[in-house]
Amino acid sequence: MSFQINKLYYGDYGESKNGAADISTNQTNTAEWPLWEVFIRSKQGLDHKHAGSLHAADAAMAIENARDVYTRRMEGVSIWVVESKYIHASNPDEAGSLYDPANDKAYRHPTFYHLPEEVKYM
């Protein structure tokens, strides 16, 4: 299958002229600050939620940068950072079999049960 994309969009001036898309990955640059994932608690009582990522030399800098990048409008009261390489994730290709055990257990939901109308507060 081959694709030809010549459509030019906003911020995209086409690759024949100025393309920037050839990605030679796995180029390890040791001088690059490591990548951190940022989690923010938007207010007391709520969970920390993934907000995005950023680069920083160490954890203290990551937290300060996270404050500047992700909480300029009081979006947070608490910040967690973790180096991205320490995140382990499930494989999306295996999502089908991974979540399969939950598929046929509708009886785990309260709506599975039919109760008489006159039962209140349940």
Binding site: I5, Y9, G11, D12, E15, G19, A20, A21, D22, I23
Partner: peptide
């Protein structure tokens, strides 16, 4: 798709 997105 990946390359178009990276560029854009």
């Amino acid at each position: 798709y990946r390359q178009t997105l990276i560029r854009q």
